[in-house]
Design a protein around this nucleic acid. Structure first.
Lengths: 108, 108
DNA sequence: CGTGTAAGGAATTCTGACACG
DNA sequence: CGTGTAAGGAATTCTGACACG
């Protein structure tokens, strides 16, 4: 049951459907790609394919744009968030390694 | 986090992508619809849209077809399984109602 | 029965560009 | 900067039908 969590990240949705789902025009969606905010995959013959995660991201972008935030700012925020998350993951990885060597044996 | 379990059942995938995902020809996919094995939605202008659940179902169908099972048999099996599940849900619903009236107060 | 294919048309998507503000 | 639009072409999808086995 529930085998695949990749339903959210698998890129299978064409731009027309994404447009319906987000309310954005295809022009806008392609422009946000140009501005490096979304990264669809391409089918064999070059058609863009998006994931549900991309759709949600685009909705967030649309909200920020409505507040007047420029695509450049949105991109900067995304990059900052990404670096923060990486830092966190490194800390957790390190903690895990330390535990693997010393932490596991509770006391003896 | 993880707000939407509908990633699996939301019908957003076009037939070409389903064909890639399943290895079935578009002809086969349309035929299985004709035989009432899958039920895609339609976009405004009539294009079929499938869910991840549909994709998995189609893969199951493809496996059965390879074993020589006819579409009619597959359909009968699906209907039987569905009735069974409904029966189960009715039982559980009933049990829940009974508990709501009598079961909750443990003892007094 | 299950699937391939050619047919003709309609809708989709793509890119690069001009426009406006 | 962000978005609309017309342009031309290529790929997608649709339906109904004929073919084969």
């Amino acid at each position: 049951m529930s085998e695949n969590p990749s339903y959210k990240t698998r890129k299978v949705i064409t731009i027309g459907v994404v447009s319906e789902l987000t309310g954005l025009s295809e022009r806008q969606i392609r422009y946000y790609e140009e501005r490096k905010l979304v990264f669809p995959e391409r089918s064999a013959k070059g058609n863009r394919k998006y994931s549900f995660a991309d759709v949600e991201l685009l909705i967030d972008i649309a909200n920020k744009r409505e507040e007047g935030v420029q695509t450049y700012e949105i991109r900067q925020d995304m990059l900052r968030a990404e670096r923060k998350k990486e830092k966190k993951m490194r800390r957790e990885l390190l903690r895990g390694e330390i535990n693997a060597r010393f932490g596991i044996q509770k006391e003896r």
